[in-house]
Design a protein around this nucleic acid. Sequence first.
RNA 1: GGCCCUCUGGCGGAAUGGUAGACGCGCUCGACUCAAAAUCGAGCGGGGCGACCCCCCGUCCCGGUUCGAGUCCGGGGAGGGCCA
Length: 829
Amino acid sequence: MNERYEPHSIEARWQERWATAGVFEAGRRPGAEKRYVLEMFPYPSGAMHMGHGRVYTIGDALARYLRMRGYDVLHPIGFDALGLPAENAALKDGRHPAERTRENIVGFRAEMKSLGYGFDWGREIVTADPEYYRWNQWFFLKMLERGIVYRRQGKANWCTGCQTVIANEQVVDGHCERCESPVVEKIIPEWAFRITAFAQDLLDGLDGLKDWPERVVTMQRNWIGKSEGAEVDFAVQGSSEKIKVFTTRVDTIHGCTYVVLAPEHPLVARVTAPARRAEVEAFVARMKQTDVEARTGEGAPKEGVFTGAHAVNPFTGETVPVWIANFVLAEYGTGAVMSVPAHDQRDFEFARKYGLPIRVVIQPEQGDRLPAGDALAAASTEDGVLEASGPFSGLRSADARRQMSAVAKEKGFGQPTVRWHLRDWGFSRQRYWGTPIPIIYCAEHGAVPVPEKDLPVVLPPKAIITGTGEPPLAKVPEFVNTTCPICGKPARREVETMDTFVDSSWYYARYLSPKDSTRPFDPEQARRWLPVDVYVGGPEHAVMHLLYFRFWHRVMRQLGLVFEDEPTRRLVTQGIVNGPDGRKMSKRWGNVVAPGPMVKKYGADTLRLFILFAAPPEKDIDWSDEQVDGLFRFLARVWRIFVARQECFGAPAAALAQASGDALELRRRTHRTIQRVTDAFEKELKFNTGIAALMELVNALYQLEPKTDPDRAAVREALVAVATLLSPFAPHVAEELWHEMVGAAGADRLLAAEPWPTFDPTLVAADTVTIAVQVNGKLRGEVQAAAAAGQDEVRALAEADEKVRSHLQGKTVRKVVFVPKRLINFVVG
RNA sequence: GGCCCUCUGGCGGAAUGGUAGACGCGCUCGACUCAAAAUCGAGCGGGGCGACCCCCCGUCCCGGUUCGAGUCCGGGGAGGGCCA
């Protein structure tokens, strides 16, 4: 065998062998239990970066391990190819997004293959392919039928200069990125998914996601944001109008000293007193031009004006002034709030600023009483006991809320209500590079769905992309002009496209039968493969993508396509790969390290090993040239020990049983290493400790110079273990070494498809152990004892130790704590 | 401001409540070499003390629970994430 480790002379060869043998194809072990390992598919907007390298390396190590454990493993890959960045890039260099995307995908594929990722390439999908997005359209039609898709009036950013809708990303400080004209909010019709209809189910489902990171579950829970409260109607004095407010703190309503409407609230125009009209209108106009962040963001001053109107608190009959203010938004709740300055901080600040009264109605259950409102330093937002609240005085907040909303309902001026933070998902985009929405507008029949048989509605290859936000498809007559499916008269197609989050909401299912041209995927395959067992991706998708993904799964379940409650059982969120300086990799800092050049320099195995060894998957890591060098040296060291122990390759396994002394010790280490590496996969995913265990075994191999047959057999056993255990992490070098070792016997086999080794429990359990000896919890020595030794035996050994004896001298042993195989602690006084 | 997370040698990181610092990087020393690199081997938390055994201190800080706390509980600090 080659004296030196030369990754470039072996890696491509094994990649080819794996591909020809088809070891990564799913479905080749029909009788075996399945495992579906999925990494978030990439958005190929440029070349592959280290972040991609990390996700796929983690997923691949896991998939390779599971395959060796005998599972039928599905490990697919594809490309999230539609979307804004590709369109923006196209704008810059004038190239068509399709062309650029195709090119990037070619690059990604080549890099992924050079990294040795074991994907089932036969299942590759590209979302820009009409054969993929036709099913987005199909889902759209099904959801339209079921009322899950609907048309609504949505808010959009309208550039007053370009006279068009622009994306959030294009709004900079309330101005258009391109022409710098002010951007205002404009209400335009848009398409939306009724995800809120699934809010409760999405919330309930979170409880079952035991193998999701707690923080992701929490973020989803907060995003769904269920809050239980009450709606209460405040009558407007001298009018038949009612102001409906939503509050989670109806228990504080006796402390309400004013009511605030959102400036956009429809009642504003109707209730404003003539004398206040000019001021109110000016304020409303100004708010329309201020974005939400500036109105409600951190440090934004609370601002408002009095409308001149008054409202009646239905609980007290008291009259309070009606204001409008910047911090109340029309789209949250009812667009109106009852203000209780003593018990809400925003209301408190506002009241102080405008000299509105502050009235305390909740006292803490324990501790000091709150001073009168005027003396209050800040709002007290805790629950407590009600006072000055009529018949409800003396109740605790929680009880009061229940009783008061019941009373409101009984008397007809309110009711208990649930409010959600989650909004419906508006998915219309005024963009070209997306899935066309399959709708035809007919003068006579309105918005008509494209019949299923006419799908896909294909994106026209030629379009003028201006980036102004005006839908580019509107300018393609051969696309727009069509006929009404109902009456056949001339009609126009919808020119908006779908949000790309649609593509990624169900791709995991398309992998199951990616070439099916009659349906999105085969439900029978879903029965076999779903749910995804492990889903690996970045935590930046904790909310949007993963929520849409869970939502879509529920829709597919309603459609009878899938049968599980949730799309994925386990979620692994991986950390960022930072530059060597600890900062985020960016051209700006000049600290970008790309996987491609690293593979050229060190080979794929070193890069993979570095990524996995640096830290557990969920932690951020810093790129380190020194560490990478170190990992390369480790692989070279592994190679050298194989070279140095070639004479052991043919050692007979029968001699293993006679191993003794150092050879037996090596065998124990080998088996313990098998256990530790297996644990690294089976418990928490801590590849770093698994690799560390392998390093220890390699170090131990260097310590034993084999002299006898049993020695050589033990060495061979260890070498086999090293190659096999290393293969999920550094598959090429492992494969090469394994073949060198097994020779002709392995000629038509591949390590990638060999079974994972098992350990012998009797070898793992040491027969003698080191037991720590403590006196009063402080380490005072250690003794060697049989693993099975009991307390008395260990105590005798410990007391025989001179150091220990000196600490026990002249003291009374009050208690002895004994932990078998670990320690003995003398408690003395 | 709310919710959540993190904090361990020079660095990345290990440690079911049971010998803190596995493993790697880095550094120091030794072997090999004419020499260097590479390699192989040894050592490296701080201090008492220049080596020995030994002793003291040590996992952000303060307190608690426990025979025993990096780990559990309470309070504080610093950094980060998400939401407002």
